[in-house]
Design a binder for these strands. Structure first.
Length: 432
RNA sequence: GUGAGCAUAGCUCAAUUGGUUAGAGCACUGGACUGUGGCUCCAGGGGCUGGGGGUUCAAGUCCCCUUGUUCACCCCA
C-alpha cells in the first residue's frame, strides 16, 4: 500500500516543536490579555465573497492563492487566507458595535494560501492576530506596536526591527498613485526599460514598482515621488503623532517607504516586524490600520488597526532560545504480577485524580525492564509492587535521583508523595 | 506560476574510476544467572537506495521523465 504523507507545504507539528508552540501561545495569550484582548474563534471556511470583498480582487492572495471550492449546494467556499476579514464579519454579524467599545479581540489558528513553500512560508500556516476596532487615534496604532513589542520581549525574541510607513487614505493615495504612474510613463523610454513584472505592476499596483529588485528598475525610480510628499494633512498628522507615541515608549523604528501591504484594505499606518534570521521571508509580524473595511462590509463606519504574527517564523527564531520542558512522571509503578497491576491501577487512578502524573509499567515485563523505562521517562519515584509487598501490605518506594529506597506500608504511600510534587523532574527539551 | 540544488534505515551520514549479500553512529527492541534503572558490552528488527524508464555484462553511482523536498523569484505571516 502506498504510504500517505502530508500535502505540499502542510506540516505535522510534533514533538518537540509543539512544546515550543504551546509555550509561545501561552506567553502570547497572557500578554494579549494584559492589553484587554479576548479570543474569538473564527471559522476556517467562509464564503469566497468575504475574502474577495475584504482583501481585494486584484490582490495576489485572492487572485492566485486561495483554496476555493464549491460545497455540495454549489456555494463558493474558501479556506481563510487571513483572519481580519472574518473578525470584521463577526463584529458586524453579531452587532458587536453595540457592546462596549473599543472592541479588542484576537485569534489563533491556521491560514491557507496556495503558494510555493520556502523557508518560513507554508500552505497551511498559523497566525496569532489581533484587531482593535473603534479607535481612530494614532495612539491605537502605537498601542498595537507596543503590544507586539511586549509579546516579543516576553518571548525574549532577539534582533527584531520595527519598520513603519504610512500608505495614505482613500483621498490621498490615488493622488500619489497617479503621480507615480505619471513619473514612470512621462517618457516612453523609461516605461520600456522597466522589467516585465514592473510593467504589469504599473497598471495593477504601481506602488510595488518601488519594491522591485531589478537593478535597472532601482536606477529608474531614482527621483520618483515619495508617498510622504502626497499624503494629506490628516494622514501626515496621524503618522507624526503615531511615531511620537513610539518615541514616548522608546521603541526604535525604521521608516520604510517600501512597505506596501498586499491587502487592499489598509489605510494610513502600515508596519512590519522584521529580522535577518529568517531568510527571504523576514517579516515575523505585520499589520496596519484599515479604517474603511468595517463600513465596506456594511457595518457602521469604524476605524480599526490590527496585525498578525507568523507562528512558524516565530518558532523558528525561538528554537534553542526558549527553555521548554516536558513533565516527567512523579511516580512510576513497577508491577510484578496481576495482583500488583491491579493495585497499581487503583493507586495511580487516585493519584492522577489528585493531579499527580503517574505511569504504570507493563506487568509482563521484568522489573529490570520496567525500571529502565522509568529511567528513560525521567520518572522521579518508582513504587515497586511485587508478591512480597502484597503479602506485607506494603510497597517499595524508590527515589530514582537519590538512589535510595524504603519499604513503606500501604497507608503511608500517600504521605510519601505529599510535599514531593515540587520534586517533579523536568526534562529540558533540546532542539537540534 | 518561474529558476536552481538535493532525494540511501525513524534521524545524521558512508559506499574506490559504474563491480559481489548497501554500511556506521544515534534511536528503537531484547539480553548480560531468574526482584532493582542510568554506564558498559552483546544481539536483533528495520532499506525494492523516492517512483518509472533507458545505457551497460554490471547502476545507489551515468542519461531522461516524474514525484517529493530545500532555497530563491513572485508575493507574503
Amino acid at each position: 500500500m502506498k504510504a500517505y504523507s502530508t500535502l505540499k507545504g502542510v506540516l505535522d507539528i510534533l514533538q518537540p516543536e509543539i512544546l515550543l508552540w504551546n509555550k509561545i501561545e501561552e506567553i502570547t495569550r497572557a500578554v494579549l490579555q494584559n492589553f484587554g484582548y479576548t479570543e474569538l474563534r473564527i471559522p476556517i471556511i467562509e464564503s469566497t465573497e468575504l475574502f474577495i470583498r475584504g482583501i481585494g480582487e486584484t490582490s495576489d492572495i485572492v487572485s492566485k492563492e486561495m483554496y476555493t471550492f464549491n460545497d455540495r449546494a454549489g456555494r463558493s467556499i474558501s479556506l481563510r487566507p487571513e483572519g481580519t476579514a472574518s473578525l470584521v464579519r463577526s463584529y458586524i454579524e453579531h452587532g458587536l458595535n453595540n457592546t462596549p467599545q473599543p472592541w479588542k479581540y484576537y485569534y489563533i489558528g491556521p491560514m491557507f494560501r496556495y503558494e510555493r513553500p520556502q523557508k518560513g512560508r507554508f500552505r497551511q500556516f498559523y497566525q496569532i492576530g489581533a484587531e482593535f476596532l473603534g479607535n481612530a487615534a494614532p495612539v491605537a496604532d502605537a498601542e498595537i506596536i507596543s503590544m507586539i513589542d511586549t509579546i516579543f520581549k516576553a518571548l525574549h525574541l532577539p534582533d527584531v526591527t520595527v519598520e513603519v510607513n504610512t500608505t495614505g487614505c482613500r483621498l490621498c493615495r490615488p493622488l500619489y498613485r497617479d503621480a507615480l504612474v505619471g513619473f514612470f510613463t512621462s517618457e516612453a523610454s523609461k516605461t520600456n526599460m522597466l522589467c516585465d513584472d514592473c510593467k504589469v505592476r504599473l497598471v495593477k499596483n504601481p506602488l510595488r514598482v518601488l519594491d522591485c529588485k531589478v537593478p535597472t528598475c532601482i536606477e529608474l525610480r531614482k527621483g520618483a515621488p515619495l508617498i510622504t510628499e502626497y499624503v494629506c494633512d490628516e494622514c501626515r498628522e496621524h503618522d507624526e503623532a503615531f511615531k511620537g507615541f513610539l518615541n514616548e515608549i522608546d521603541i526604535k523604528y525604521v521608516e520604510n517607504p517600501e512597505i506596501v501591504r498586499g491587502l487592499d484594505y489598509y489605510t494610513k499606518t502600515a508596519f512590519e516586524f522584521t529580522t535577518e534570521h529568517l531568510g527571504a521571508q523576514k517579516a515575523v509580524a505585520a499589520g496596519g490600520r484599515y479604517d474603511n473595511l468595517v463600513a465596506d462590509f456594511g457595518g457602521p463606519k469604524t476605524p480599526a488597526v490590527g496585525f498578525a504574527i507568523g507562528v512558524e517564523r516565530l518558532a523558528e527564531l525561538l528554537r534553542q532560545r526558549l527553555d521548554v520542558y516536558v513533565c516527567a512522571p512523579l511516580i512510576f509503578f513497577a508491577v510484578l504480577g496481576k495482583e500488583a497491576q491491579r493495585m497499581a491501577f487503583k493507586l495511580s487512578t487516585r493519584y492522577r485524580q489528585a493531579g499527580v502524573y503517574t505511569e504504570i509499567g507493563n506487568a509482563l515485563h521484568t522489573l529490570k525492564n520496567q525500571l529502565k523505562r522509568a529511567d528513560k521517562m525521567a520518572a522521579r519515584f518508582v513504587i515497586i509492587i511485587g508478591e512480597e509487598e502484597i503479602n506485607k501490605n506494603a510497597v517499595i518506594f524508590k527515589d530514582l535521583v537519590n538512589h535510595t529506597q524504603e519499604e513503606v506500608p500501604l497507608e503511608g504511600v500517600l504521605g510519601c508523595i505529599k510535599g514531593k510534587q515540587a520534586a517533579y523532574n523536568k526534562q529540558k527539551i533540546n532542539f537540534s
